[in-house]
């Protein structure tokens, strides 16, 4: 994740890892990151989606994923509550909403500040300036913390692979996009339910649709602010919860959720040794004083005893 914080540097230095430190670390900021300028995204409009599953098929083809269990022509699967898996980067589900059947397309939302990238301890995830969140399997250890972290429950894992299991998720067709091609799903969509473009243009386009058809759309562009904003955006004719999209995720980017805990690291490293050494020194000193006082007491007692003895001896002698 290129929006890293310097909070960790102090500790890394202290731990002696600074010698193996590589790669740039940009400065900490309290400013809200609004995404890379001109980064790209996709707008999904569920009023235009007809649930034909051709986007699923195109995704499967361009990403060379294994053949599906049920043919992409089979529309009965739409009513199952499916999610992304290691074999499917995107799926479309149908929901019976207050306005009749409504579809939802699920794939990676490509967060502006991705939880997966913040969580990954080998930086396998990267937020590219084009907007896509990419994954590098060549460094992945397979701890699956990204799956814990993702608020949209997108990354899937190849649990059945023995030697080279990978995290699997939508790449926004990054290899195609940098070649100037459209993402597979966008290209195939027969109804323009998917629009590809610069994120800021897509937001303008979405606002415009809401403005023109205020009765049709819910006045909320999903993804504009959710979890700090995502490059994938949504328009809906029904409240998002009716199509099983969570509206309780909040607007705080995932990286901010753990920033406080990570920033305490240099404080612990700096203060604990001082405090603990101080406590040790105090204890040692009080031990020393106690020992000294004991010796003094013993000395005095001995002195008194010998004086006593001398006295009694003198008495006896006389």
């Amino acid at each position: 994740m290129s929006i890293s914080r310097r909070k960790f540097l102090g500790w890394v230095g202290a731990a002696g890892l600074s010698t193996v430190w590589s790669g740039p670390a940009s400065a900490a900021t309290t400013k809200h990151f609004e995404g890379y300028p001109d980064s790209l995204g996709v707008l999904f409009d569920n009023l235009l989606c007809i649930g034909c599953r051709t986007c699923e098929e195109a995704c499967n083809k361009v990403n060379e994923l294994p053949p599906p269990e049920q043919s992409f022509k089979d529309l009965s699967v739409l009513d199952q509550k499916r999610r992304t898996t290691a074999k499917t980067y995107t799926i479309v589900n149908r929901y019976n909403s207050s306005k009749g059947p409504m579809f939802r397309k699920i794939q990676c939302n490509h967060c502006l500040e991705p939880a997966c990238a913040s969580a990954c301890f080998v930086s396998a995830f990267k937020k590219t300036k084009e907007g896509a969140v990419t994954y590098d399997a060549s460094v992945c250890v397979g701890c699956r913390y990204c799956m814990i972290a993702c608020p949209f429950e997108i990354p899937a894992y190849e649990y059945d692979k023995v030697l080279e299991p990978r995290i699997m998720k939508c790449t926004m067709c990054y290899p195609r996009v940098i070649k100037g091609l459209l993402p597979g799903c966008v290209e195939i969509c027969p109804t323009e339910a998917l629009s590809f473009g610069k994120r800021k243009d897509l937001i303008r386009m979405a606002r415009d649709r809401i403005h023109r058809y205020p009765d049709r759309y819910v006045d909320h562009i999903y993804g504009e602010h959710e979890m700090g904003g995502t490059n994938w955006l949504y328009l809906s004719g029904v409240p998002y919860t009716e199509v099983d999209m969570r509206e309780d995720l909040g607007v705080t980017p995932a990286s901010e959720l753990t920033a406080g805990a990570l920033s305490s690291v240099p404080m612990i490293v700096g203060l604990w040794p001082v405090l603990l050494t101080g406590i040790y020194a105090i204890n040692k000193r009080s031990d020393k004083i106690a020992k000294h006082e004991r010796e003094l007491a013993v000395d005095q007692a001995e002195k008194a005893a010998s004086e006593e003895a001398a006295k009694s001896k003198a008495k006896e002698d006389s």
């Binding site: 994740m1 890293s4 914080r5 960790f8 540097l9 890394v12 890892l17 193996v20 430190w21 590589s22 790669g23 670390a25 990238a117 913040s118 969580a119 990954c120 301890f121 080998v122 930086s123 396998a124 460094v139 992945c140 250890v141 397979g142 701890c143 699956r144 913390y145 894992y157 190849e158 692979k161 030697l163 080279e164 299991p165 990978r166 990286s255 753990t258 990570l262």
Partner: peptide, 19 residues
């Protein structure tokens, strides 16, 4: 973990210090 032989990777290959 999926690839246990890579457990040293966070230290020797690439540090995910935001994690």
């Amino acid at each position: 973990v999926g690839r246990p032989w890579r457990l040293p990777y966070p230290f020797i290959v690439q540090q995910g210090t935001t994690s």
